[in-house]
Amino acid sequence: MNPTRQRRLTIVIAILVAVIVASALVVYALQQNMNYLFTPSQVQAGDAASYKTFRLGGMVKAGSIQRGGDSLKVTFTVVDAAGAMPVEYNGILPDLFRENQSVIATGHMDGARFVATEVLAKHDETYMPKELKDAMAKAHAGKRIDEAANQDKQQL
């Protein structure tokens, strides 16, 4: 390798290393505050206290969905591994919204209640036919397959 190429190689690699180090530091710094959502236990621990509006993420607790008789108002409880939070929402819910489904609600705290202005459904990375899911659910005998599949993010 001649000296010119040697020099160019050194310069390019040095710049590349500098850029990688810089972005690694940025990514590391953002780790703290670039989270898209807070889980109920994080909110109860006070992590979201500095935000007026934030996103709450977790699973819809089975049997907690209550719809208003004459309006779009709906209340439900969002849970994670260690906490639970009642949510109130007035609007149209996405098709995937159901019990034991991961949801992300945007809104603010009103006392101990979370008042949502937008509710999004999150789906997991598992894809399988319905028959297979039914068979697996039977094999697990009472164990909820949705819970197993949805636990990936709630652990974080």
């Binding site: 990514v27 670039m34 959502l37 993420g57 990375e125 894809y127 399988m128 036919p129």
Partner: peptide, 24 residues
């Protein structure tokens, strides 16, 4: 992996089992 996102994680994994049925 690094952040909580609305987007779900990877389905096809080079290391470990993929979470998708063979027919798909």
């Amino acid at each position: 992996v690094w952040w909580n996102t609305l987007h779900q994680g990877s389905t096809i994994k080079l290391l470990g089992p993929s979470t998708i049925a063979p027919g798909m």
